[in-house]
Design a protein around this nucleic acid. Structure first.
Length: 438
RNA sequence: CGGGGCGUAGCGCAGCCUGGUAGCGCGUCUGCCUUGGGCGCAGAAGGUCGUCGGUUCGAAUCCGGCCGCCCCGACCA
């Protein structure tokens, strides 16, 4: 992508409303535009990141055996009256009426609707277990939206729902999501720690929050060092196997947010094992049994011909929140530092002197080579001063920068800079490509 | 939902107290210049001062209502 033809409205100054670093950087990097309190437009750069995060989430859900569908943002009130939540949910639920005065709502979550779909089609125990998910916009009319996309009213969420025959099966589904979440966040370059959680208005008796560590996180967390240092991506996972030992290996070590913190238990850990940090909640998983299947009349026929209420769970990831959360976890004074897996472009190519034949030629050559190799490149070919280009490129945080100036170009050389850490190497054209593609 | 604050050009702000010509910086546009870290010079465009009403000869400025946004706290993917 040539920057001269792209839509990237970066800002030199920070808009006044932004308090936290991710919000400031997202506004300055031209990723989002606020349209109302807690409601944002996603501009091209932000949209790319959002899409990349959703892609990783999707791949891991699919790998864990979930099936993607797509439910609407607007739901009929009737379903929520069946479960009893139409009254219970309170003012956080945005209620609307259509022209026929029918009661509708902008969905804050989808337990009722997925239960409706399930009960319409699934009639036999033979079809269980079943896990369905979608990635869809939600609306919760928060009293006080803040922190940019970290706590918006409209937000993009991945929500999965499991249906099982019995509690043991439900536990296995829960464990699948537990492991899938660990992998999902790890792939985004995040340290995510599962912590036992309250079940909140969703209900149920088994629940974990996934908290990622970030210096600017909202809540204080206390964790065993082994959890922080563990690399889940290095461990083979077979979703068909019993995942309980793997889950236990995570839940048996100390990890708590400040609300659930037990200073005595934490203090009992050996020196060097105690990690105190700040955290941001990016995922939450629940097992809630028949809380919805019973009132909504969801049954399948068992082997003995009798009806069985499926055991259910639901599993959420804040996809749009993750964009902010990743920035909170990965930035410096100059701007964002994207992990490669979610970066809007992998490489930023800076032409320091557009119009100079040698510089243009080398840039065009490198650009074409990277593009044809399938690497996403943002090519800064603007008529701007070097400082502007460096500042913008650092701000938007692409993992790699290739800097081509007239002096180097004359010798066929360019500078390769890694955004994270900042080390640079002057290399010839082939070596640059080798480093990036090899 | 309690407490506090703010709405003046795309962004950041001054002007308001003490009523009388709407300003500054950045950004944008044009030209020149410059070209390895947000240069320099010259010119230009751009504002119903959130909104409705009141006071006044006259309101960005004083008074009241409404709307919007932000911050702190209680609550949440």
């Amino acid at each position: 992508m040539r920057l001269s033809r792209y839509f990237l409205p970066t800002l030199k100054e920070t808009p006044a409303e932004a308090q936290i670093v991710s919000h400031r950087l997202m506004l300055r990097a031209g990723m989002i535009r606020q349209q109302a309190a807690g409601i944002y437009s996603w501009l091209p750069l932000g949209h790319r990141v959002l899409t990349n995060i959703a892609r990783i989430v999707r791949e891991e859900q699919d790998a864990a055996g979930c099936h993607e569908l797509l439910m609407p943002t607007i739901q009929p009130a009737e379903l929520w009256k069946e479960s009893g939540r139409y009254e219970d949910y309170g003012k956080e639920m945005l209620r609307i009426r259509d022209r026929h005065e029918r009661e509708l709502l902008y969905g804050p979550t989808n337990e009722e609707m997925v239960s409706d779909i399930f009960r319409a089609y699934v009639k036999s125990y033979r079809n269980l277990p079943l896990m369905l998910y979608h990635i869809q916009w939600k609306f919760r009319d928060e009293v006080r939206p803040r922190f940019g996309v970290m706590r918006g009213r409209e937000f993009l969420m991945k929500d999965s729902y499991s249906f099982d025959l019995d509690p043991a099966g439900a536990r296995q589904s829960y464990n699948r999501m537990f492991v899938a979440y660990l992998r999902t966040f790890a792939r985004m370059g995040l340290k995510a720690i599962p912590m036992r959680a309250d079940t909140g208005p969703i209900g149920g008796d088994l629940s974990h929050e996934f908290i990622i560590l970030a210096e600017t996180g909202e809540s204080q967390v206390f964790v065993h060092r082994d959890l922080v240092e563990r690399d889940i991506l290095g461990e083979a996972v077979d979703y068909e196997s019993d995942l309980q030992p793997l889950v236990d290996s995570w839940t048996s070590l100390y990890a708590a947010t400040d609300e659930k913190h037990d200073p005595i238990a934490f203090g009992a850990l050996a020196d060097g094992q105690r990690v105190e940090a700040r955290g941001i909640e990016v995922g939450h998983i629940f097992y809630f049994g028949t809380k919805y299947s019973k009132p909504m009349g969801v049954t399948v026929q068992g082997p003995d011909g009798k009806p069985i209420h499926p055991e259910m769970g639901s599993y959420g990831i804040g996809v749009s929140r993750l964009v902010g959360a990743i920035i909170e976890a990965s930035h410096d004074e100059a701007g964002i530092i994207w992990p490669e897996t979610v970066a809007p472009f992998r490489v930023g190519l800076i032409n320091l002197k557009p119009g100079d034949a040698g510089t243009d030629a080398l840039c065009d050559d490198i650009y074409a080579a990277l593009c044809s190799a399938g690497t996403e490149v943002l090519y800064d070919d603007r008529e701007e001063r070097a400082g502007v280009k460096f500042a913008d490129m650092d701000l938007i945080g692409l993992p790699w920068q290739v800097v081509v100036g007239p002096r180097g170009a004359a010798a066929g050389r360019a500078e390769l800079k890694r955004r994270k850490g900042g080390e640079r190497h002057e290399l010839d054209r082939d070596a640059v490509l080798e480093r990036l593609l090899g």
